[in-house]
Amino acid sequence: MSKGYHRPAVLTATPTHYCAGCGHGIAHRLVAEVISERGARGRTIAVAPVGCAVIAYDYWDFDCSEAAHGRTPAVATGIKRALPDRLVFTYQGDGDLAAIGMAEIIHAANRGENFTTIFINNTVYGMTSGQMAPTTPVHMRTATTPHGRNPLTEGCPIRVCELLATLERTAFLARGALNTPRRVREAKRFIEHAFDTQEQKKGFSLVELLSPCPTYWRMTPEEAMEHIDKELTRVFPLGTVKDWKAGPA
C-alpha cells in the first residue's frame, strides 16, 4: 500500500477558499475518497449548502446542486425521489442544518429519505463572519453573543444526532471529529457506513463532524484542534448514536 499523498480522483485540483486550519478541506477530501474508492462518481449527486461550503461543488468532480439556505434536505429529497438509484448526499453546516433548515432535516429524516447528510458542526457561522450557531456552546463569545452565549436568553447547543435519533426512520447517526489522524480515519469509516446504509436502502443517514474554525474561535489551528477535545466533545459526545446494523438499542 502506497503511503504517499494522492488526490482522490473526484477531488478537483482547485485550491480551496477555506481559512488556514479549517476542517472543511478535510471533510471534502474524506467524502471524495469514499466516493472514489467505491467508484461512485457516475452515480453521485451532491447538494451543497449555503454557508462556508457554498461552493463545495468547485472541489468535487461529480454532479452537484445548490439549495436555498437550509432547504438542502428538501432539494436532496427531490433528487433522490426522482432518481432513487443515485447516491445522493447533502453537505451542510450547523446554521444551514440546525437553524434555518431544522424543519427540512427533521422531516427528511422522519420520512426516512434514503440519502446521506454530512453535517459539519463548527459551532459558529463562518461565512457571515462569526455569529452564534444553534450548536454554539454556552458562554462562547461570537459576533452576536459578545458576552458569551447566555442559556437563559439564547438557549443551549442543540445535539442534532441525539435529536434525530428519536425518529423511527433514521437508520444511521454518528458523530465524529476532524482534529486528529485517528479521528479523521474514524470519520471516514462513519461516512463509508452512511453511504452503505443508503446503498442498501436502509433509510436516512447522517454523519456529524466536529470541525475546527480557528478564525471565529479566535485560536491558532493547533489550539482549535485541542479545543475540540477539551471543550466540544464534552458538549457533543463522539461515537455512533444510532445504527440499523447494530439492531435496536
Binding site: 432547504r71 428538501a74 433528487i79 427540512e104
Partner: peptide
C-alpha cells in the same frame, strides 16, 4: 412521486431538486 411536504418552502425546494434531475 407525491410528497406532502413539511412546508411550502420545502415543497418548492423539492421541486428544485427534482427539476434539476
Amino acid at each position: 412521486v407525491f410528497i406532502q411536504a413539511e412546508s411550502e418552502l420545502a415543497a418548492i425546494s423539492m421541486c428544485y431538486g427534482a427539476a434539476a434531475t
